[in-house]
Each structure stands twice: as structure tokens, then as C-alpha cells.
Design a protein around this nucleic acid. Structure first.
Lengths: 138, 138
DNA sequence: GTTGGTGCAAATAGTTTGCACAGTT
DNA sequence: AACTGTGCAAACTATTTGCACCAAC
């Protein structure tokens, strides 16, 4: 996700409104490093904005994802997680504690240049997931 | 997934029973190239075994996954898909039609040797997903 | 006969939607 | 004033579980 000012600008340019609820969500995502689920985000924003609804969080996440400001991670079969870090990187996923971690990938790896992708297929993003057990859970 | 005979042998060795329902499921998976969801598999097996229940299909898929005979793919946020092909390969996922395709990966890519994975993390499998739009849907 | 499997029905959980009212522009 | 956003409640969908009966071994 970009700077809040830039995201706000994009929303306004798209005719979307800036509400206190949305600003709280932007703020939280900006500082986040934990790959939260929609519900995680909801429960966090609740602390700052006790009257916010899950629906609002949910719809704002959809909008941000559709704008390409954050990634929806399909890594945990039980629920979606969101990642505001749009740089090329991979993830670890622990099958036991369900924790998601970041893996830095050297830029020369060119994740987006996967071999054998048909020319006709338009790649938006490449997700790389190492699935297994973290140190704690072994 | 291995040959049916080998899978049957593994089940017996683990004290698990071989039923007509399970054999139908094994057969179907063996010939499958389409990354079906649990429900896809259920509807296919129904044709051969009209009295089978979703629960039976579901539990057998869990067992096969836990044995490492097939992979559960977290690629479609809406549902899990299963892949009996356990060789190192990647997938394409079309956001529009939800189709999953295979991508061959040269063995020298060493998918399982992702850089920067903490020593303490035990990697079971690495999933690589190119997410975007297929030729048809563009 | 013992033990695990099957199938039904119900519970659970995450996600998504319709709608009336409120807030932003 | 026009139009989008919010929040509630309900619907939906996939997944998971409890349990009585059945079948493989």
C-alpha cells in the first residue's frame, strides 16, 4: 500500500469518499506487518473506532484490493489474509499455528517471469508460498 | 498420487480399510488433470457410485492429503482444490473463470530451495501461483 | 467380533449481500 | 442536493462434526 496521502488522492479521484472509518483502516494497514485476516483488521480497528462494522472493513478491503493497493493472500485454506506490502516477496505458512512470515526474494529472481506461462495469460501477481512447520511448532 | 495398488497398500498398512467408495475416489483422482474441488470430485464419483455421500469424499480427501498422496491447493480464495500430481510444478489461476492450469518448472529451478527460509522452518511443499486472467477471459 | 467407514443431518465459520439511514462532497 | 458509505441483519457457501448403522478385516 502506498502512502496514506496517495491512497486518499486515488480514492477522491475515483469519486470515492474519505470517511473516518476508512482513514482508520488505512492507518492500521500502513503500519501492519502481520498479514491479517479481514476479521483481524476488524478487531484492531474496533479499538480505535468502537462503532465500526465488519461490513465496512470488508468492503474497504475489497476496494483496496481491486485498486491494487493490497494483495489478498490465498495461503490459509481457512480464510483470506491481506498484505499491504506489494513488493515482490514470498511467504512462509505454518500449517500448525497458521502464522504467515515474509521471505525476501532478490530482485534478480524475477518472480513475475515464470517460465512456460502461455502468452495469452495475463499475469497480475505471482504468489510463492513455503508451506510447512515453523520452529515453534515442530 | 501413486499407483492405486501402492495407495491401497499404504491404507492397509495404516489399518485403514479399502471400500468401494474409496476405490472409486482413487480411480477418479488417478485419471484427473483438472485440479478439482471437493465438490467437483463428489459430483464425479456420484456418476459411478450414486449413493456416495459428500462426507465420505471429504474425509477420504483429508486422509489422502495427510498421507501426502495429494496436495491441497490454496489458490482460489473461495474453496480448496486438490492436485494428485505431487511433482514440482506451478499453477496459473484465472481470477475471472477460476480455472487452474499447470506450469512445468525445470527441475534445476529447485523450487523447494527458496532463499531466506529460516533454518528452523520445515518446508513441506512450495506452492507457486501465477494469478491473473487467462486468454479466454481477457 | 472388532474396528474403522459411511451417510445423514446439523453446526460452524468465513464471506457476501440488501437495504434504510447517515455522512461526504 | 446528489451520491457514496455505513451498519445491521440475513443469506450464502464451503467446511467440519456427531452419531447411528454398516462393512471390511
Amino acid at each position: 500500500m502506498r502512502d496514506i496521502e496517495k491512497v486518499v488522492k486515488r480514492f477522491r479521484e475515483a469519486g470515492l469518499k474519505i470517511t473516518p472509518q476508512r482513514l482508520s483502516i488505512f492507518n492500521l494497514l500502513q503500519r501492519n506487518r502481520t498479514h491479517p485476516s479481514a476479521d483481524d483488521i476488524y478487531r484492531e480497528v474496533l479499538k480505535v473506532h468502537p462503532s465500526i462494522s465488519f461490513t465496512t472493513v470488508y468492503k474497504t478491503l475489497q476496494t483496496l484490493r481491486d485498486m491494487g493497493e493490497l494483495q489478498e493472500l490465498s495461503i490459509n485454506p481457512e480464510r483470506s489474509h491481506f498484505d499491504p506490502d506489494m513488493s515482490e516477496h514470498a511467504h512462509t505458512f505454518c500449517r500448525s499455528c497458521k502464522q504467515i512470515g515474509d521471505l525476501e526474494i532478490a530482485p534478480e529472481t524475477h518472480l513475475l517471469k515464470l517460465p512456460n506461462v502461455p502468452d495469452s495469460f495475463e499475469v497480475h501477481s505471482v504468489q510463492v508460498h513455503a508451506v510447512g512447520l515453523c520452529g515453534e511448532c515442530r
